[in-house]
Design a protein around this nucleic acid. Structure first.
Lengths: 242, 242
DNA sequence: GATACTAGACCAACCGGTCGGTTTCTATTC
DNA sequence: GAATAGAAACCGACCGGTTGGTCTAGTATC
């Protein structure tokens, strides 16, 4: 049934003639156009209200073309969401968190960039992960499983970073990394949600400092950081000291 | 156009005969049945996916009846949501917050009851306020305005309680009441949202203690509480000490 | 007998999905 | 290197079903 695997595989094995990237098999281009248009539509209107006709006209292709690449709307939506969301979470959270051993600073910086509007295109549209998980979790097990997996990867990345922060002496060792990671994700999502409802990013500016103050209470009370240089008077400010 | 004001007014002024409650003007009964059915449908499926046919069969009435009481789906949805949500927020947040001067304890107790599943019927359905505000805020200004107003009333109630807590010596005076109130609402909403996506209330149990620990850091560091008895060795454990 | 209310057939618009047919590309053959 | 066969890609009219909303006729209540 599925004429192609979901992920964009760039294996040009069937093409022994020469350059593989310049042609990218016309079909691959329309497939990508469909993914892009579908994600935008879903982000704007939600999955159920996303109209195939609108997606088609945005992607500048037709029904037959769509149903050649995807078995149904469900597969198109899942492919669009997963490809875009994976890339987003990876770039904005997982990678910055993977190496830091001062997670409280890293997290504050990421959230600060969110609040400042440097990450999301339009804060009034909300976070796609949240929009779609809110809509689809009770309705579709495939969407729910994927989005829950996204949240788990996200939470685990924060939890691992907090554990590393504890070892490095940048986080108080009484902190429960996993529980606190959930709280951090929840607060971030909740703030984005309130900004969306208020249609006004000022809500973020007013509340973020209070949250950052809360995060700062998680630092060790007694000793200064052990073997990491938080205030670098030399080189290499925050390379992972694994 | 609007055959009746949105709020449930129990003014039996048009009925001079006698008892007003027993009859409640048959129309009032069907109107309430419509409101109840509509709210349930919207909570389950969202506003746009809420089917009038389903609402009608649940309320055991017909199209003509519906369009006699409400000009359109929009008015029905707004009336249903506002009546139910107002009552919910009032009972579960505004009233408990209105009198306490130990807001951190009060807030912890309310959230604890949410996490324990004592407040919401089915945690997998999520919070109606959030579900609908997520769906409708970018789409409909009437819904957005109403829901934003709900959030503001909610945030202000917490903010006022925190201010009272500061005066009573139960909250550190460096806390920004309004900013912290937004953070508290955001975290609560985010936790409910994560529980919904995980379809598993355990997420709440694992994270709530970490959030409660954060809240405890907002208590004054130096002196014990001034004139309130947090550790009662006498009677009246937590009666509102207005 | 006027008013409030209920009833349900009916409507156009739109939905996701199907299907027979056409175009475009690629590999093979002569 | 032109011809050709077959697969991959694309096209859009069409389908049954559902949606919110309208309208006219009829019934209960005062």
């Amino acid at each position: 049934m599925t004429p192609r695997n979901l992920k964009t595989t760039t294996d040009g094995t069937t093409n022994p003639s020469g350059q593989a990237d310049a042609r990218v098999t016309r079909g691959e281009r329309t497939r990508q156009a469909l993914i892009d248009a579908a994600f935008l539509e879903i982000h704007l209107n939600g999955y159920r209200a996303a109209s195939l006709s609108d997606i088609l006209s945005a992607a500048n292709c037709t029904k037959g073309s769509l149903y050649h690449h995807f078995p149904d709307k469900h597969a198109l939506g899942l492919a669009a969401v997963s490809e875009k969301v994976d890339a987003f979470i990876e770039a904005n959270w997982l990678i910055p968190l993977a190496t830091t051993n001062d997670p409280l600073t890293t997290i504050r910086e990421i959230i600060q960039r969110h609040v400042a509007g440097e990450i999301m295109d339009d804060p009034r549209l909300g976070c796609p992960v949240q929009n779609i998980s809110q809509e689809m979790s009770p309705l579709d097990e495939d969407f729910r499983e994927y989005l829950n997996d996204v949240f788990n990867r996200w939470i685990n990345a924060i939890s691992d970073a907090l554990t590393r922060g504890i070892k490095a002496g940048n986080v108080c060792n009484t902190v429960d990394p996993h529980g606190m990671a959930i709280v951090i994700v929840a607060t971030h999502q909740g703030m984005v949600s309130l900004i969306k409802t208020a249609q006004n990013p000022e809500v973020g500016n007013k509340s973020a400092p209070s949250f950052f103050n809360l995060l700062e209470t998680l630092r060790p009370k007694t000793l200064p950081p052990k073997n990491t240089r938080l205030t670098p008077d030399n080189d290499a400010p925050n390379k992972a000291t694994s």
